[in-house]
Design a protein around this nucleic acid. Sequence first.
RNA 1: GGCCUUGUAGCUCAAUGGAUAGAGCAGCGGCCUUCUAAGCCGCGGAUGUAGGUUCGAUUCCUACCAAGGUCACCA
Length: 543
Amino acid sequence: MKDTIKQSLQKAIGKLYPEAAEVQFVVDYAPDNVDADFASNAAMVLGKRLGLKPVELAVLLKEKLDQEDADFEVFAVEPGFLNFKLPKEHWYKELGQILKSGVKYGESKIYKGQKARVEYVSANPTGPIHIGNARGGPYGEVICKVLEAGGYKVLREYIHNDIGGQVEKLGATMWYWYKKLLGEEMPFPEGGYQGEYPKEVAEAAIKKLGKGLAEKALPKLTDFALKYIFEENLQTLADLGIKFDVIVKESDLHTSGKTEKAIEELKAKKLTVEKDGAIWFVPNDEFLEDREAVIVKSNGQTTYFASDIAYHKEKFTSGYDLVIDVFGSNHHGHVPKLQALTKIYGFPPEHFQVLLYQYVRVKKGQEVVKMSKRAGNFVTAREVLEEVGRDSMIFLLLLTAVNTHVDFDLDLAKDTSEKNPVFRVQYAHARINSIFVKARVSASKLGQADLKHLQTREELGLMRTLAKYPELVAGISESFAIHQLPHYLLGLADGFHSFYEKIHVINAEDEKLTDARLALVKAVQTVLANGLQLLSIKPLEKM
RNA sequence: GGCCUUGUAGCUCAAUGGAUAGAGCAGCGGCCUUCUAAGCCGCGGAUGUAGGUUCGAUUCCUACCAAGGUCACCA
């Protein structure tokens, strides 16, 4: 409908002012305090262009549009907005569409036939996922689901950094605890992982591997710890509704020779230089400018970035239309290096998106908790999950834009969980369910309801909100502003609760009105359920 | 010091350059003999500072102040 209005306006402007036919203007939903469905700033931008008064232009445009016999009413108002009011039939039609589409309402075919691969979480296997970086899980998952709703086929991937310096430090820490638990004192390794957690893993190792490990069996102990921690993290993610299609092991990139091969290719393309005994990546393009990065250390070992080159080579050359990396904002310095790879592997840079999220900051009362795995001082994602519950946790993490620094007060966590806005959404869904339990109507009957009986302001308001859902989902698949989804659901739930207090759905004296209202609340329930599904939150039948 | 992100109500957060800056929590006052009071209705209260661009700025630009992050032959 927006497009129809926009075209009509475009036409009117073209006729009245051909010299300004190309001006860019917006048609969008009118704000709630305005008695209209859509609004446009066309007269204002036109006024700027022509040096004329916006209000007068708005009136002229309105008159022009009135001659066109379009199926909407136009109003010109101060300071120069054009407002559009649609006949109720438009909203009835949209409502019918929701009932017809059901679980598919909100899906589209914009990206039909295209493939996307999305990497997210990829937590280091040196400790449990903490709440600071837990944001990436639900965030990445919603992005995948939203892309799927737009028609993409999505590959969910995770890279397991199972080799390198941090893994060696984990091994050293494990050895310390292994010996200590068996009664042998030794100095704590430099740069080892503090806190209780490594000790717990060591206890599990003793149970599993026995007490007789010699020092040369250290790789075995390290391997045990890696697997233990990794599986625990995957379980936490699974409990949040996240499952990966592909786990890429950094060690595999190595043993398969992919890392080595990628380095050789870069050398052959003269994109490397040797300096101080190390080999540096030097693409000299607009992304990395004159910065450089080590890929092979002077001791001959490759760096993590070398593996990442091999990994991204695979991402960029595997026939995908869209490649997304979801990282914590602390990796932002890594982004230009990855962008530089797109050109090398012939992948359109604009189809490679690195989405950064700010870490959640944890407070205990007034005090900020510094989160560090190394210092052993962190709040785990699992702790929060168990404390506040899955639905509340997901909703809390997703309610804010990912580039804001959220404060998460752990002392209030449980309290918050009971007052979590997610329950307003769940409650709306459950309330509608109980209406249907009482009404006992079949779904087929709803499709035949005469929607013209929906006349009140509350009913029309709900229909308008419902109709925004598909373009919301489509918009998020481009903006990745997923916090808009929970906000929308809250708005819809509030609209419903308000409606529910004022209007009784089941009316014993008017069966036709009852049927129409049942159709309306069914549509509300459908959209609530569809939206919650995108968030990996299960809609509740009862509270 | 360079770079990235952020500063909105007592607290936690919204607001494609537009109309009266919205919610929740906390506070105060109301509403259950009718489909679930985890709800509804009402009341107070906010754009870090100083400039600039614009018909119009929370939004864009500059400077400053403040918070978090990042500047490895770590990952």
